[in-house]
Amino acid sequence: MTVLDLLGDAPTESPSEVPPVVELRGTARQFPGDPPVHALHPADLSVGAGEYLSVVGPSGSGKSTLLNLLGLLDRPSDGEYLLDGIPTAHASERERAALRAGHIGFVFQAFHLLPHRSVLENVLLATIYSGVPRAERRDRAVAALERVGLSHRLDFPPTVLSGGERQRTAVARAVVSQPRVLLADEPTGNLDSESSEAVLELFDELHAGGLTLLVITHEDDVSARAQRRVRIADGHLREIA
């Protein structure tokens, strides 16, 4: 089994029937203060199933703020955010946790792997919260790690892995429970160019397999890998033609 098998072919339905995976409707985030910080000005964005989108912008431009909103880790102070057609801005914490578990896969700059658990256990962690049937968890996790080329590292602690291997473990964890969208915040920020390339190739393959990807970066060559690019500056979102 491979992740490509798991993810299956791209959806066959025509786009008009299917709501976008990610849809921002005048979504804004400001942090209270004196003066208040407008980290994200009201933004509209629609990402369809299977799209590969990058958000590029300099440090402090509001990229992480945007990703936290998209990942349901934070609530917009204004506007609505629909995930897979489901309105989330005023959903309960419980619903939002369930959506995070089932619809979203995260890849962070700092990997966020548990140091005391093996590579396999780290991937299994995602299946626990997303509710993958217990009997399928191990097979899926092993398949996901195989897919990212780490089947020989299943029982290693992440602390002995290289940065590239750690990030690939994190990617395996992000896709193991078949999210609707993969959100990556500076996924190559802590990697050398070779490891970065391996991770970006992985993203290309996942995209080819039909996964919706949204990658946030400050590097232009990383953002150039995406099919569609959005620039963010001072909290303003602008599509790059």
Binding site: G8, D84, H103, Y129, S130, G131, P133, Q178, R180
Partner: peptide, 23 residues
């Protein structure tokens, strides 16, 4: 919901066994 999302049944979401194992 689309076919892709439906592929994984969400049955065993953090049950008592998971709780004990994580603890």
């Amino acid at each position: 919901m689309t076919a892709v999302a439906q592929r994984v049944p969400r049955t065993d979401r953090f049950g008592p066994r998971d709780l004990l194992a994580e603890a």
